[in-house]
Design a binder for these strands. Structure first.
Lengths: 335, 335
DNA sequence: TTGAAAGCGCTAACAG
DNA sequence: CTGTTAGCGCTTTCAA
């Protein structure tokens, strides 16, 4: 069933080397042989075997994309950015999910390396566990971190301005007069959470507002966990009057908890979420959120990776994309 | 940098064949050589080269997944199902987006075939254009259609009960007393739309309710297009009192149009959407929708594909997964 | 500009 | 159970 270069060469009456040169687009070839080879290839229905080519060249033109969960709209959008850039450059992307599990992450990376991807874009499950990636980097293998970074790892990372975004969101709440602002986030192993909570603290400090540590709730990375943490917050003797949700899953959980406890937004509690999804304008009241350029995050990461693969030797960069506080209705009448 | 089987064999004092047998897990090997080889491999940091293995075996253990747009939560969820099954079976998935464009679909398929994927899961952009896939199928290549099918193509397809779901939804609306029910869908090149509109018609027929063709609006596959079609519907001299949106993007567009025209749900217009997303319970009023087992759709498609790859020769099957009308608040007080 | 030939790293007969 | 020996299909010197 499969037509090889040799078949094409024979039919075209040239050597496989020549056939390879025209079909592979490398080296020299005369117009004459080009015509003959192309014709033979067409007639035979030839299709290069990228596997064989990869074995010969040492490149696969494939990049590995390791995310927590492609079902999370955040990762889906970032993946689209990665995928588009990859496709534009004739690269293909192999997808892997980790569910924020370091073990699965390791497995995924191993598989991808065995497949000999040219580089890796990773959303690390832990900011500390660098055993998986460090050896690769010292070998000069191309890796870029997406959305999060790993402390002390000499890799490019493409992130957003988490501290600044959280700071703005919380400052906004403080300016509205809130004194007790709850924060719901998932694992503090993840740099986005660390930074967003840092921004939350910074806003308090700047306003001279004392911070009650019990208002910071750290849970799992599911909507359900966020729901429970938020409920715990609302059940406090002196509950918060405003909530900051550190990502889109946390926002959903918070929303559910607020509803389940019979409260209403913004009358009983104000809410601002990090990460703007398209449904945030569909709900009532419309949500005030910190919007981030997610698609762009994916694009930039992929561009960085391809540059590295191409040989870019510049020192590892930390790229920060801007975020924007989008004021809508969930903290009281329009901002 | 890269350690090969030969290196391991030399260090272990055996032939590359033996080293390959233990590391590759095929053929026979004594406990003795197994120990030596494993040890040598560990010491050297050996990692199989899947590219070389694929060239030798003719299998890549990779499947291609071609969807319209991974950013659409529907495809993201299905992709997760595919990805999970693939991972469970030691397979990897290469992702490609088509944006519902037949040309891009063709390009994507070509690239995946060159990469020598073992099989393809495709969400076809057109129910008619079968030039891309038909030749593959006659060659015995494994292909399964996800969510949609292509007329006359002898491939497995994993779909949901579109007609039945739409019929139920519209019948529900009719029972509520609605006489003029608008329908918003995207391209009728896509079988899901064809079938859902068929269900819409069927419900009318069964109820003996005359159907006004001008109430069926077909637009592009974006939220924006849906918004415009819905607005056109609402601007009719005698506008519909209820709306059926054929998929999640259409639902968003409809929602936006309803709001932009200053109407309210369900007072001015009732709405039921096809495909239940998690935000549908977050909005006010909560949306009544036809829920489909999206993750399962992906899983089943992947299982079917792997079975084919493994050699299953049974005649092409059309698998229909059940849907369920979830009544909430967007058609009036709770069902 | 072309062809011959040597790999890329692994698997798969086939003897032994 | 192990080693030898061919490849898998392509790219890449190296001469011509």
């Amino acid at each position: 069933v499969l037509v090889t270069l040799k078949d094409v060469a024979r039919r075209a009456g040239v050597s496989t080397a020549t056939a390879g040169r025209v079909l592979g687009g490398y080296g020299y070839s005369s117009a004459e042989s080009r015509r003959k080879v192309l014709r033979a290839a067409r007639e035979l229905g030839y299709r290069v075997d990228a596997v064989a080519r990869s074995l010969a060249t040492g490149r696969t033109n494939a990049i590995g994309l390791v995310v927590a969960d492609i079902e999370n709209p955040f990762f889906a959008e970032a993946a689209r950015g990665v995928s588009d850039v990859a496709a534009e450059h004739g690269n293909t992307v192999i997808l892997a999910n980790t569910d924020e599990d370091v073990g699965k992450e390791e497995t995924a990376i191993t598989v991808l390396l065995e497949k000999r991807v040219d580089g890796l874009i990773v959303t690390p499950a832990s900011s500390e566990h660098q055993e998986n990636l460090a050896p690769l980097l010292t070998q000069g293998f191309a890796v870029v971190m997406l959305d999060r970074k790993v402390e002390g790892l000499a890799a490019d990372s493409v992130l957003v301005q988490n501290i600044e975004g959280a700071r703005q969101a919380v400052a906004y709440l403080i300016n509205l007069g809130h004194k007790r602002i709850g924060a719901v986030c998932d694992s503090l192993q993840i740099t986005t959470n660390i930074e967003r909570i840092a921004g939350y603290r910074q806003a308090h400090a700047e306003a001279g507002l004392p911070l009650d540590e019990s208002l910071i709730r750290v849970g799992g990375y599911t909507r359900q966990a966020a729901l429970e943490e938020t409920k715990a917050l609302l059940a406090l003797p002196c509950p918060p009057t405003a909530l900051f949700a550190a990502n889109n899953f946390m926002t959903i959980g918070a929303l559910l908890a607020i509803r389940e406890t019979g409260r209403s937004i913004p009358k009983d509690v104000a809410l601002v979420g990090f990460d703007d999804m398209d449904w945030t304008t569909l709900c009532q009241p419309q949500l005030t959120t910190v919007a981030q350029p997610v698609y762009e995050l994916g694009r930039v990461a992929a561009e960085r990776l391809l540059a590295r693969i191409k040989g870019d030797q510049s020192p590892p960069a930390e790229i920060r994309l801007p975020v924007e506080l989008v004021v809508r209705e969930s903290c009281g009448v329009m901002g």
